[in-house]
């Protein structure tokens, strides 16, 4: 056993902050690139039967005067056109106009009203909050409240890492992103709990005079192989989905990938060390009052 996880915890905290800070700044400056799920709008993806340039598509779309729009090539002959929320007639006109460049088949067409989008966004935030509170209650019940708080901080860490990366790289946030965040925190708390479970067990067998830091360190080492192996296997699946799974779920899988890696890190390097800090604070508080 060479590395003492708890003694060097300030380094772990520093790494976490270094990763989160740029994303946090970007979140404040640019916010998130909300998809149509949350702000309303229209996405049309078409496949042409012949190669078509982005310029041709752009000119055609601009000619319809639908306001701000973005054109993105999504496959060899596939294009995604994003616009404001369109009426059915406008949407039909758009497809008809694209069809004039070359024969175009509709791949997907999504349209969300602005108020409906706001509603979905609110629901997403609520889902996240409720999930976190329920997890806190569960951990407080099965372990102890301070461990619950430490685990939740680790979860916020993971959420911020994923949000930050999506903000920095201007990736689109839609309702599947919310599912990704919830899965991420599910995995992260999984990792944390396996470690806490070992700490709980080792605390029971703790010898007199054994430092808390050492017990936690040993527990972390005992669970390390599991932590790494599990995250590796999840990464296998996610990497396969990312590279082979088609463009539709790219961002969703990316969010999961970042979240799962961050979750593994935060479970080892944030949750348990934080709990140690909480415990030490509590001890110092007690001796402080005893002296006074």
């Amino acid at each position: 056993m060479s590395l003492h996880f708890i003694k060097v915890r300030k380094i772990w905290y520093a790494i976490s902050i270094a990763v989160i800070l740029p994303g946090l700044i970007s979140l404040f400056l640019h916010g998130l690139n909300l998809g149509i799920d949350f702000k309303g709008g229209n996405i049309l993806e078409v496949r042409f039967d012949q190669p078509v340039t982005a310029d041709q598509v752009r000119k055609t779309v601009d000619g319809l005067h639908l306001g701000d729009n973005t054109i993105q090539q999504s496959g060899a002959n596939d294009y995604i056109v994003r616009t404001r929320h369109l009426t059915q007639d406008e949407s039909d006109a758009l497809l008809a106009a694209l069809n004039k460049i070359h024969k175009a088949t509709m791949m997907q067409n999504q349209s969300i009203g602005p108020s409906f989008g706001r509603e979905l966004a609110m629901k997403a935030v609520w889902a996240l909050l409720i999930a976190i509170v329920l997890k806190l209650i569960y951990i407080a019940f099965r372990f102890e409240f301070k461990q619950g708080i430490a685990a939740i901080i680790a979860l916020l860490h993971d959420t911020l890492v994923v949000l930050g990366i999506f903000s920095l790289f201007h990736l689109q946030v839609d309702s599947s992103f919310v599912a990704a965040i919830l899965t991420t925190i599910g995995y992260s708390i999984n990792d944390t709990i396996v470690i806490f479970d070992r700490i709980r067990e080792n605390m029971r067998a703790r010898k007199k005079g054994e430092a808390l830091e050492d017990v936690v360190n040993v527990s972390l080492w005992q669970t390390l192989a599991r932590s790494i192996n599990t995250v590796l296997m999840v990464i296998f699946v996610l990497a396969a989905l990312y590279f082979l799974g088609g463009s539709t779920i790219h961002d969703f899988v990316l969010a999961l990938l970042v979240g799962v890696i961050s979750g593994a890190y935060s479970s080892i390097c944030n949750a348990s060390p934080l709990w140690v800090d909480f415990k030490l604070l509590e001890k110092r508080g007690k001796t402080g009052t005893a002296r006074a």
Partner: peptide, 21 residues
């Protein structure tokens, strides 16, 4: 014990998603 506790918390995610999604 570890498996049960860790799965229970993931289950919380699944249930919340079910009701909100």
């Amino acid at each position: 014990v570890a498996i049960f506790d860790s799965n229970a918390t993931t289950m919380i995610s699944a249930i919340v998603l079910y009701f909100f999604g």
